[in-house]
Amino acid sequence: MRVAIYCPFLVSVLLGAVAPGLGRRLPPATATRLLTAAAVAAAAAVSVSLVVLAASLAGDVPIVAALADVRPAGLAASDPVPGAVGTAAVVASCLLLLNAARIGVLRLRALLDARALCRDVGGGQGRLVVVDDDVEAVAVPAAGGTILASRAQLAALPPAERRALILHESAHLAHRHHLYRLVTDLAVAVDPLQFRVRGAVLYATERWADEAAAAGVGDRAVVARVLAREGLRSVAALPPSPWSALAMGGRGARVVPRVRALLEPAPRQRPGLVLAAAGLVAVAVLTAMEAQADGEAWLDHAPSVSDQVRACSGPSQDQCGMVSPVGAVEPTGE
């Protein structure tokens, strides 16, 4: 438990480190699914570890110890987790929970705003709505989906590229990319150590839509052209400000790699990479489960003040009541 319990944190850092590479090397649909699943599993493992660490501190608090009917001094003596780590875990758990709630509310509000907008412009059911003002094309995942594009943008493109643009946005809606993005976003809110997974999934969903558009048009170079053309147009349309290069560069300029990827051969499936990533996350999940079991065992076997606990420390210890404070805390991490 002393080492295993910190393993999920290490795995999250590693997952964040390899996520952009996986997003580039794997076919985008595979990358999106793999990274989303990995992000959720890694975040769950980290949460379990955090709660176990936090619970170890709870054992030091007299009132909790009294509830659990164990002697605080005895618990502290056998505590495999330093008190400072336990304190940090409690603080971190509270902050992360608040952060996840805040992110959840923000995203929900954005979805509701988008839905209201779609309703007002008569969108829905995957319909294209053309707006007069020159704004960037966007897929809004509300009311069956709406694609918004500007008249100027559509008029500036040759037919094949116009079609590619529409197929790209349509693919976002058809494959529900916003759900992958939302789930990863929340996983990262709970487990910020893997923060780079978020950008990797955003990129992978864009690439997924690019490849879907390429398949629909039957020519990957057409999608590369529309991306490059629109990119140049948007840079020309936006007056450069002293800080814009910094701000945009900081978030990662990703149009260029998308164009490059379309001009290169389509990425092949790489089962080895998928397996390696799955294995990495499996380590986190298994170690978290082990840490949780160890944590329970440690509280169960701590020196007690009453004979009742000793009498109960057998196969039927679940009914003894002393497990309940721990049991009440831990499921929240899952």
Partner: peptide, 25 residues
């Protein structure tokens, strides 16, 4: 995260690269 924009993010410094890629495409 919710809205999928066509262009995502772009650095004005990428203009020459994009121009070259467009010619290539």
């Amino acid at each position: 995260v919710v809205l999928a924009r066509f262009l995502d993010e772009l650095d004005p410094g990428d203009v020459p690269v994009l121009q070259r890629l467009l010619t290539q495409a």
